[in-house]
């Protein structure tokens, strides 16, 4: 049976249109990339509540702050690389410092803007934004999680970052339990190793867990869709049984999911840890799947690193 593929940006565009119907205070701001991020669908449907600010991200973020302070519910949208770098100060010192309910939608995250190259590939957005107080940081794992994630962000007091990908990826959670911000989703129970994943590589981790099972390695598979605040209880519960964890993300290994998890476990329950993600380097141009593979984000890498972690467990006297 073939799995349906939907791009997160398509799901995001549709969810905005649906949520706009019942929420007259929802406004959307974009920085001249609305046909790419798919906020244009909202703009076509509700032109009075859509504002294209041109290529001026800092201005866009602060306008949204002003709107939120006066009762609107703004969603600002641009590529994750620009959102996390061109208006970092506006996000920190205006939106987050004042705890304003602005949704920050970062599109084309990771290496998903694959052909545009390093200038457009966002591999440090989680590290940057996670360091800002008051900000909830979310990473949907497929198109089905985008709508509920957005709805919950709009219902919350305070700001939320939603990390979105460009390309169609497998739909994993259309029939699963509802997405819940702040909660780890347990995809599979196991006893030998914890696999903790966020974002697009979630489907790879699911494949890897199946392969490992065939080899006799039983993985506890967690989808960590909220990086901040971290669901510490679910994380600690898992590693207290497996004593091994492999984190998997489409992000630099300096400051993302792996770091967030390590910060929790180093203090509460230190265990043998390894990471799948992008090393400290600039990425390059290429087809998305090839690029992910070239930079070490693949089912094979997950299986390999998981196997090595489990081997050290077995060889321990």
């Amino acid at each position: 049976m073939s799995v349906q593929h939907i791009a997160m940006r398509e799901a995001f565009g549709q969810a905005l249109v649906e949520l706009g119907r019942d929420n007259p205070r929802l406004v959307v701001l974009d920085a001249d990339v609305s046909s790419s991020t798919k906020t244009l669908d909202f703009g076509t449907q509700y032109p009075d509540r859509f504002f294209n600010l041109g290529v001026a991200e800092a201005n866009m973020a602060d306008i949204a702050a002003g709107m939120a302070a006066c009762g609107l519910r703004p969603v600002i949208s641009t590529f994750a690389i620009f959102l996390s770098l061109k208006c970092t100060e506006q996000i920190r010192s205006t939106i987050c410092y004042n705890h304003l309910p602005v949704v920050l939608a970062g599109g084309y995250a990771g290496v998903s803007d694959s052909f545009d190259g390093a200038s457009h590939q966002s591999l440090a957005d989680l590290a940057i934004l996670r360091a800002i107080p008051n900000l909830t940081v979310t990473v949907p794992g497929d198109g089905a999680e985008v709508g509920p994630c957005l709805r919950q962000a709009l219902d919350r007091e305070g700001p939320t970052y939603i990390r979105l990908s460009r390309n169609p990826t497998p739909i994993l959670f259309d029939r699963a339990a509802p997405f819940e911000t702040g909660k780890i989703r347990v995809l599979k129970r196991g006893r030998d190793i914890t696999l903790a994943v966020c974002g697009v590589p979630t489907y790879m981790a699911m494949e890897a867990a199946e392969r490992l099972e065939q080899e006799g390695i039983s993985a506890d598979l967690l989808e960590v869709s909220t990086i901040k605040p971290m669901d510490e209880a679910a994380l600690i519960e898992s590693v207290s049984r497996t004593n091994r964890i492999l984190t998997i993300e489409e992000h630099t290994l300096r400051g993302g999911l792996g770091s967030a998890i390590s910060e929790v476990l180093a203090r509460s329950h230190p265990v043998k840890t390894d990471f799948v993600g992008i090393e400290d380097c600039f990425t390059e141009t290429g087809p998305y799947a090839e690029l992910l593979n070239a930079y070490g984000i693949s089912t094979e890498q997950i299986v390999l690193k998981a196997r090595m972690l489990v081997d050290t467990k077995k060889s321990r006297p």
């Binding site: 504002f51 306008i63 702050a65 002003g66 709107m67």
Partner: peptide, 27 residues
């Protein structure tokens, strides 16, 4: 205080957002 400030250059964008909100909310 209607908006926290300190780092220069933010205020006009924020004020613009407030005025645009007034327009949207018919305030």
């Amino acid at each position: 205080v209607d908006m926290s400030t300190g780092s220069l250059g933010h205020g006009l964008s924020v004020g613009l957002g407030m005025a645009m909100a007034a327009q949207a909310l018919k305030a």
